[in-house]
Design a protein around this nucleic acid. Structure first.
Lengths: 130, 130
DNA sequence: CCGTTCAGATTACAAACGTAATCGTTAGCT
DNA sequence: AGCTAACGATTACGTTTGTAATCTGAACGG
């Protein structure tokens, strides 16, 4: 069951790299400086750190670069939904034997479910059953 | 909001370490050799690898050791549910802004939900509403 | 034209991780 | 008593990750 998410060929994205991806999913393309504006504040990073992460993400095939004068514009090559879907799946596989229901049960136990969550989940289920 | 899961004081458990924890959650206490019987097959590891992981887990405070003759018996110090809950929470926080509903929506999209899952989730929701 | 500045590229380096070989000790067997 | 086999402990070593300093080349101001 390989090659289903368009996520294919992209090496695993680390935690720090993920923060950079988020910034670019929020808005793209952006220059390194723009990305830094956002994430350097959030995570207390310096510019070089962001540059490194951007480079690694380009190497990994997660970002595309487009020259804009003397600098680069960065754009995600993988969709946030693909990434998020992959990560979710990984977790469910690793911890719950691939079944989603126990995950939900855990979140429920941990009081990670607000009443609004519950309502929304019910709506989702209704739709799915159609 | 600190110190709520009995998970406290335990450093993060890595992927490889997690495999060892699973074996011990399945049954405990166990000797290193017994753990290896299980995980070495699953992951193609050798005995020394398992020993290392066990040591690291003891250092991290995730396992307790109890001498049994000349060897050790290993027992989890953190409950699987605490670990699983923590990891789930981490994912939901990182990817879904702490809301569980979008997670479920994603799993639904990815066809990670079987009809039985759906039925079970509905049951869970019913119970929670009581 | 020349220097300063601002990009990206290269290099750095410690910690964590994955994976394992080797060491030292003790318990049994003979 | 001596030898070996079985443990845990120590050491090893390449890779990934987090975090950054430094280098290099080009653009723009003067």
């Amino acid at each position: 069951m390989a090659a289903k998410d368009a996520n294919d060929g992209v090496e695993r994205i680390s935690d720090a790299e993920h923060a950079v991806m988020e910034a670019l999913w929020q808005r793209s393309p952006q220059t390194a400086a723009e990305v830094c504006d956002v994430v350097c504040k959030e995570r207390g990073w310096s510019m070089p750190t962001v540059k490194t992460l951007l480079s690694r993400l380009v190497q990994k095939g997660a970002l595309a670069t487009e020259p804009d004068g003397r600098r680069f514009l960065y754009t995600p090559l993988i969709a946030r939904s693909a990434y998020v879907g992959g990560e979710s799946r990984r977790l469910v596989d690793r911890l719950f034997g691939g079944r989603a229901a126990p995950l939900l049960a855990h979140l429920a136990d941990a009081e990670a479910l607000t009443p609004e969550d519950i309502a929304e989940i019910e709506r989702l289920l209704q739709e799915m059953k159609k």
